[in-house]
Structures are given as structure tokens and as C-alpha cells.
Design a binder for these strands. Structure first.
Lengths: 139, 139
DNA sequence: CCAAATGATTGTATCATACAACTATATACA
DNA sequence: TGTATATAGTTGTATGATACAATCATTTGG
């Protein structure tokens, strides 16, 4: 394994993370709202606080506060979990989906700009490599 | 431009950033220490608080506190700026370099593990694409 | 049936950050 | 040259995201 390649990846990941976390908003929506809504809209089934906490590797209390905010904004609604009275399920509301779509389009427009000099092949490959890295993290 | 490629990149970047920011430490060193030391060790010349703040796009006050911590730990030392009495320059100490090298090696070992299933070509390409993206951000 | 486990909420502490106020120094120009 | 303005840095204060602890309600297992 070529050490230089690893060093480059290491350094560029540090830079990327540092820069990216400076963006407090994603497409005009704060980061936690965007990621939670994205996750809720992608996850097939009903999703509890616990499930979100596991997915994001955040404390249950943190997710509990975030979902409370989302609920207050009307972006998600709470459904009773008939099988377990301690928890409930969240699902994205129509308003939430509308806002998420707006935010996502804003982000895509920005990314289209960022990647406009790249070839189709490069964009495709970059996305695939990122996905592969993320799937590896999970393990 | 293929919208699906952009969507994949968009989503995987969100996931990557979210996951990565959970790591409060990089190679046994907290994130700000690691990034500051890396920057100081890479930047050819003497580096002021202002220069670091510009580079990281953080407030001067934030960098001021971080450098104070690094100085207290003995990882950097302050040199007078003879041309300007308001500011001083920072440089990494031997101890700082030693600790940074340790941390970097720890990170590289972890990355070697993460990327062990990748081909040489994929690692090389991923590093290059990351670097390209980061250089584009700057503009 | 009761003890232990689990999901969620809320209180509290910590940390990274930005902004504001202030100090010291440098720069510009009248 | 002297003064007004700009700039670098530090410190005080506020905010937001987070973890941990305490607590409550409910579920599960012996």
C-alpha cells in the first residue's frame, strides 16, 4: 500500500471535514434538521428516537431535543407505537418534505457549480468511492 | 451533468461529515490541536493568529484561545514579530512535532485498515479527487 | 408477579464557536 | 509630524450541540 496515497487522503479528509463543518446550514436549513429529515425520508419504515440515535451515533437525549424542534416546526409528526407505549414513531410531514426538497435542490445547485469542471466519469467515481468509504465506516 | 451522480455525492458527503465530526480526537489528539499543528508544520513561514484564522475561516478569538492552549501544552512557541508589535508568530516545538508525528501515524494506521480492501488505483484516485474538491472550495 | 432492562424526557455541565468590548500598535493623511 | 482610523490580539459573554445523570413509564424475563 502506497503511503503517499494514504497521507494525501488523510490530509484532504481533515481539510474537507474542517471546511464543511463551517457550513452551519445546508440549503438554508440547519445541519441537524437536514440530516434528520433526509434520514427519515429515506428510511422505509417508522423511525423512533432510539433508531435515529443509533443511526447517527448520537445520544438519545440529543436526538430527543432535535426531534422536538422538528415537531414544533411542523416538519415531522409523531405516531403512536402501538406495540410499545414508551416510544413513538416519527414521519416527515408534507411541509417537511416540501422544505427538504427545497433545501436539497439548493444544495444540488451549489454542487453542480462546484463540480462543473469535472467529467461525468469523475463525478460518478467520486460518488461511488465516497459511498464505499461510508459503508466501510459502518463496520 | 447526471443528476443521480450529484445526488449520490451530496448524500454521501452529508453522511461522511456527520460521521467524521463524531470523532473528537484524531490520532489521540483533539481535532483543533491536530489541524493547527498540521497547518503550522506545513506552512513554510512564520504564522500569526490572523493568518491561521483566515486559513481556517474561524474567528480570531477562537484561534487565539486554541493557540493559547497549544502554547501551554508546549506544542508551539511564540516568536516576536519584529516588524509588528501587535502580533507574534507561532512555530511548532520539537515536542509538538513529536506528538504530531505520533498522531499522524496513528491516523495512517487506521486509514490503512479502512482502505485495505481498496486497490492502489482507487486510493490514488480518491485522494486526488478529494484534493481537487478542496482546491475548488477555496475559490 | 416483581426485578431488571429499555425508551424517552429533562436538568446540568462542557466545549467550540461568534460577537463585542477593549488594549496596543501601526498606518494614512492633513 | 500629529492625530484619526485601521488592525492584531485578548478576554468577557452568549449560544448551540453535545454527553451524562436522574427520573419516569413501560416492557421483558425469570
Amino acid at each position: 500500500m502506497n503511503r503517499n496515497d494514504l497521507e494525501l487522503i488523510d490530509y484532504e479528509l481533515v481539510v474537507l471535514i474542517r471546511r464543511s463543518t463551517l457550513d452551519k446550514e445546508l440549503g438554508g436549513m440547519d445541519r441537524s434538521t437536514y440530516t434528520l429529515l433526509t434520514q427519515l425520508s429515506k428510511s422505509g419504515g417508522p423511525t423512533s428516537v432510539k433508531a435515529l440515535a443509533d443511526e447517527f451515533r448520537l445520544d438519545i437525549s440529543t436526538i430527543s431535543r432535535q426531534t422536538t424542534v422538528l415537531e414544533a416546526k411542523g416538519y415531522v409528526q409523531r405516531l403512536p407505537n402501538v406495540g410499545d407505549g414508551r416510544s413513538s414513531y416519527f414521519q416527515v410531514t408534507e411541509e417537511g418534505m416540501r422544505r427538504l426538497t427545497e433545501a436539497k435542490n439548493a444544495r444540488l445547485a451549489r454542487h453542480a457549480q462546484l463540480f462543473k469542471e469535472w467529467s461525468d466519469e469523475e463525478r460518478k467515481q467520486f460518488g461511488e468511492l465516497l459511498a464505499r468509504l461510508n459503508r466501510t465506516f459502518v463496520e
